[in-house]
Design a protein around this nucleic acid. Structure first.
Lengths: 331, 331
DNA sequence: TTGTAGGCGTTATCAT
DNA sequence: ATGATAACGCCTACAA
């Protein structure tokens, strides 16, 4: 059987209450009994039962991280950021995903908010609506949404508009006038913000916006890029540059297809991606892209949530991080 | 305040014990009270407090997944496999990593084994020694190690030797006689098994093994590949093929460096990787490699651990999965 | 400084 | 079929 406070108490000739106090470093314990208790605890190799502790303190010391799906390198990188600055073992992270599960997102949120399994929630997602999220506020479960500005909850996100403007400005500066834009339907707000940045950049450079140059792809993968290339060519073969807010994998797909068709990148066609994933450096030419600070987002998220859980109102409700334009070879 | 069994009991005019029984679908409850209780529970939007339940049942309904580090795409893919066949919400996964933490691996294992936080453990790692792992058996915590054959605990892993033999055989069949091999020091058993497969293949094809053609790299990343290329050339410029058990990123690095130096792949130099990561399809020429069934490993791991936790002795103690040789363009 | 006692929300064992 | 009652292991007033 597992060793409990009571076991220690008996051998030390004290009460379990006393043992509890020394284990938790409470004041007003004589040095003598503290030493004795600690010694016995060590000998018995005592570890507190976190479940029992959780019940007593109404705190689970763990936070839930809800992700759309682990196949996204963006999500994984943010998760990595969360884990690596995880204030060392103070909080355990429990992982939940929202795709392919029996229960719907709202059901999951509701359950998490009420089961008292976690002390707070980090939500990495771009598609969930604000209404679905209010449950956390209603149940007063501390929560942070990552990757998307959120009116209802605190959030950490990137300046999508600015990043897109940087990219488009750069292409224009390079002399491009017919610039296509490829968005992704599975991303909600971020994609529209990026599209907006693209438009703003055109506008301030007095280039007319043409709706037919905006293309949409379903998922951020290479396949999509392969297919969309042809469509772009069909619509306007004079397109000399493509900005791909949909993500780097789509951009990579476009590059591959372009090369295959004998279109030289970047000479005949310039490509700029969004995100900066590892594969951006393996494609040739290497992908010029807008880097999102993913580790940093995770870092902010975990720090903000812990502050909230522990009642330190850091004051920051929303944290906007800046993108970084990474110039490589594809544009 | 959260609604509890007691709240429901009061309104239903029964005792919390009764409510508990209907919530848990126990028999011997009159249809009348069952209906009434369920109705009230629904109205009050009741969710059981999992912590309290855990204390009473001595079961947390969650499993711990210990990973070396989230930067590895191999690890992430296995994790994805675990999550996606996670028997729908029955068990929650808690994530632990072993790098960059205050506590050592053994400390973490000890803690997890004793804190009663989890019902079982999946360990994805290649470097941990068997001795460090026995703690789980000692504490009778169900556990599975993934990616490495383990004497002390149940495990699921791939046939590294066979995969390496496939790769080497293929290169030999293509006429190569001077084949270098690049291993990775951070991987323990798997790397040596692969090296062994390479040796066996040489042997049965009556090609002498040359120790100086075995190179070692620290990490599975592109940088390492970039650097090792030159070293290989220095040792023997007649090397016409390189088998890279260290991993696909290293293989990709080698390809990049080769192209940069004007060495044509696969004409002048054939490259075969190990793992099959997404980037294997973005490099040009696309990487020929030995695919590890990562999702499947995760799938087996979660199923085995759940069976063990629930006392179903599936009989399988060790599951060996087969690799698949993926022929693309680099060899 | 330490012990007593009660409670955290469930489950489980008896009775009834 | 349901109600008392006692765990589960820990924390926390309050009392001594």
């Amino acid at each position: 059987m597992a060793v409990t406070l009571k076991d220690i108490a008996e051998r030390a000739g004290v009460t379990s209450a006393t043992v509890s106090m020394v284990i938790n470093n409470k004041p007003n314990i004589s040095e003598a009994t503290r030493k004795k208790v600690l010694k016995i605890a060590g000998e018995l190799n005592y570890y507190p039962n976190v479940i029992a502790r959780g019940l007593a303190t109404r705190k689970s010391n763990s936070i839930g991280v809800i992700v759309p799906n682990l196949a996204s390198s963006f999500v994984v990188r943010v998760l990595q950021g969360i884990k690596s600055t995880n204030r060392d073992i103070e909080y355990t992270v429990q992982l939940f995903d929202t795709v392919g599960q029996k229960e719907s997102e709202s059901q999951l949120f509701q359950r998490l908010a009420r089961e008292r399994r976690i002390d707070g929630v980090i939500l990495i997602s771009s598609t969930v609506t604000d209404e679905e999220l209010v449950i956390f506020r209603e149940e007063s479960v501390p929560s942070i949404v990552v990757a998307r500005k959120c009116e209802e909850l605190d959030s950490v996100y990137v300046n999508n508009e600015g990043g897109a403007m940087d990219a488009t400005d750069y292409l224009i500066k390079k002399g491009h006038r017919t610039i296509a834009c490829v968005t992704c339907s599975k991303q909600g707000l971020p994609t529209s913000e990026r599209l907006n940045g693209y438009k703003l950049s055109l506008k301030r450079n007095t280039i007319p916006f043409r709706q037919e140059l905006v293309f949409e792809v379903e998922d951020d993968n290479m396949e999509s890029g392969l297919h969309i290339f042809e469509k772009i060519r069909e619509v306007d073969s004079s397109v000399s540059a493509i900005f791909v807010p949909a993500g780097d994998m789509v951009a990579i797909g476009i590059i591959k297809e372009a090369k295959k068709r004998g279109v030289k990148v970047p000479q005949d066609l310039a490509i700029v991606g969004f995100d900066d994933i590892p594969a951006a450096e393996v494609i040739e030419p290497e992908l010029t892209t807008v880097r999102q600070p993913k580790l940093e987002m995770g870092d902010y998220a975990i720090n903000m949530i812990v502050d909230k859980i522990e009642g330190r109102e850091s004051g920051v409700k929303h944290k906007e991080l800046q993108t970084q334009f990474i110039i490589r070879e594809s544009a």
